[in-house]
Amino acid sequence: MEFRVDPDTWFVFSILFVSGLGLFIVGFITIPYILRKKQIERLQFKFDRKSIRYDQLEMKISSRGKSQLEKNNQRLKSDLKVSLREILKRNRQELETLTFFSDFEKIYPNFTSSIQEKIPNITANEIKLCALLRMNLSAKEVSIVLNITPESVNKARYRLRKKIGLEAKDDLGLFILNV
C-alpha cells in the first residue's frame, strides 16, 4: 500500500503547522513580556507607596522637630525675659548681662551677622543696643541694662539711625525687628 498525500491537504497541513508554530513563538515572546510588565507595575506601585510613606514620616518628623524647636524657643524667650527682669531689678552686674546676651544669641542666632551685614561699620555697643531694642525695651530700661543715662540711650539711637540712614519718619524698632 502506497501512501500518498493530496497536495491540497499538504498545503492546508503546512499552513496550520506554520500558523501553530507562529502562535507558539508569539506566545513564547509575549507571555514573559506581559508578566515582566505586570511585575514592573507592581514594583512601581510598591515604590510609590513606600515613597509616600517616607514623605509622610519625613513630614511628621520635621513637624515634631519644628514644634520642639518652637517650644524651646518659647522657653528660651521666657528665660530671657526673666533674666532681663532680674537685671533690671538689681543693679547691673557684668556677669548677668553677659548671660543675657549669650541667651539672646541662642534665641536669635543670626541677628548679629544679619545686622552686621546691613550695617557693616556697626560697633559692639551698637549691636548690644540693637539687641535690647529688639526686645522692645524703653530708653529707661536700656539705660539700666547698659548702665548709662536715658539721654545717652536716645543719643545712641539717634546716631544709629544716622548710621543706618533712616529718616525721622522711619521707625528704628521696626527696622531692627525686620533684621
Rank of each mutant, 00 (worst) to 15 (best):
E86L: 11
D48F: 02
E117C: 12
S113W: 09
L160E: 00
R75Y: 10
L160Q: 00
I25G: 02
L57K: 09
T123V: 12
V12W: 08
S67V: 11
I87L: 06
L146M: 11
K163D: 01
V12I: 09
K128E: 13
R64E: 15
E2N: 14
L146P: 02
S83A: 10
Q39H: 13
S143T: 05
F104H: 01
I164C: 02
D55K: 09
V142F: 01
I144R: 04
S113A: 10
V145F: 02
L88P: 04
F3D: 13
L16A: 11
L132I: 03
Q56D: 15
L98H: 15
L137V: 04
L16T: 06
V26Y: 15
L16W: 06
D171V: 05
K118Q: 06
W10I: 08
K169T: 10
L21Q: 05
R49K: 15
I144N: 07
A124V: 11
F17E: 02
N136A: 13
F47G: 15
L166W: 00
K155P: 09
A139N: 14
N154P: 05
I122T: 01
G22H: 15
I144T: 03
D55P: 02
L84Y: 03
G27E: 06
P109L: 06
E94W: 12
K37I: 04
K106S: 07
L23K: 09
V153R: 00
K118P: 00
S83E: 08
K46A: 14
Y108N: 01
K37N: 10
Q44A: 14
I25H: 08
F3T: 10
G65V: 14
F11W: 10
L133R: 03
T149N: 11
